[in-house]
């Protein structure tokens, strides 16, 4: 618990309830850094990407077999080199009007990460010099 109290973490939140979008929509949200001691970062960025993915772990595959092929991505820099305290950055991405819909391998499981398909997700990254970068992911479902 003491570790949890002093540790820092980053999260991605969407402005709207739910994670469903249509081609051409705007994806609005925020990246939130929670920290007690502050974080020395080289930069903070968020990207929205569309990937073809496979993760065959389900039927006994080994870790590390997951693969992604990026089809589309946009990145936004939210901050440069600085010591950051707890903060929140807003972002907005416009989905292409011809954006491919999510392909999910199982019915009623929109955010499944096992199997193969096509997915859209937000990835926030805080680049820590000489340290472990901080990452946060948020998957969205595109109709």
């Amino acid at each position: 618990m003491v570790f949890g109290f002093f540790s820092s973490n980053v999260s991605v939140d969407l402005n709207k309830r739910g994670d469903e979008y249509f081609a051409g929509d705007s994806v609005k949200g925020s990246v939130k850094l929670s920290t007690f001691r502050g974080v020395n970062a080289r930069n903070i960025k968020v990207r929205l990407c569309c990937v073809e993915w496979v993760n065959p772990k389900k039927n006994g595959g080994k870790n590390g077999e997951g693969k992604e092929t990026v089809l589309w991505e946009k990145e936004k820099k939210l901050g440069g080199a600085h010591k950051y305290s707890a903060e929140k950055w807003k972002f907005e991405f416009k989905l292409p009007t011809d954006a491919l819909p999510t392909i999910t391998p199982e019915p009623y499981k929109k955010n499944i990460n096992e199997g193969a398909g096509l997915k859209w997700y937000l990835h926030a990254q805080i680049d820590i010099p000489a340290g472990v970068d901080m990452h946060a992911y948020k998957q969205i479902f595109l109709y």
């Binding site: 073809e52 496979v54 693969k67 092929t69 089809l71 491919l100 819909p101 999510t102 392909i103 999910t104 391998p105 019915p107 009623y108 929109k110 193969a116 398909g117 096509l118 479902f141 109709y143």
Partner: peptide
């Protein structure tokens, strides 16, 4: 055919 069903698709690596 469900509204969330996979579309027919042939991409770089993925085929549905």
């Amino acid at each position: 055919v469900d509204g969330e069903a996979p579309i027919t698709y042939k991409g770089k690596q993925l085929v549905s």
